[in-house]
Amino acid sequence: MVRLITHNLLACHAKGCTSNNFPLQFKDIQVELREAEFNSDFLRGFLPRIEWAALVDASRQLGDTSLPAEQPEMLDDDFLQKLHHVLLEIHVEEGAMICPNCHHVYPISNGIPNMLLAEHEIG
């Protein structure tokens, strides 16, 4: 399951692709929503590891506009609920992720991203 929390951590790693290789762009995707257990401590702890602009951009690509463009300073419950939904409850099941730099295509099938490279693409 490629949730946005995972998407926020994946970058293109093809040989020689070292700049503008994150975030990967979604293409032709199918999404499923599944409830997850809310854990505010986890969200607060994870927030410093998130690339905010990439998360907002990805969530908008998936049709969710609930997150503000700027990361708020006050982490109230309403915000954490929205963050929880975007990070953990939207599952990309099918489609692909494309590198904005080298246009390498990483397919997603049955919720599993195929990040393997061919031998000549390994850095």
Binding site: L9, A11, M115, I122
Partner: peptide, 12 residues
């Protein structure tokens, strides 16, 4: 994640 070791995660 279908990958060799941590390749696509290393940057982030």
């Amino acid at each position: 994640i279908n990958s060799s070791l941590a390749g696509p995660l290393a940057l982030r």
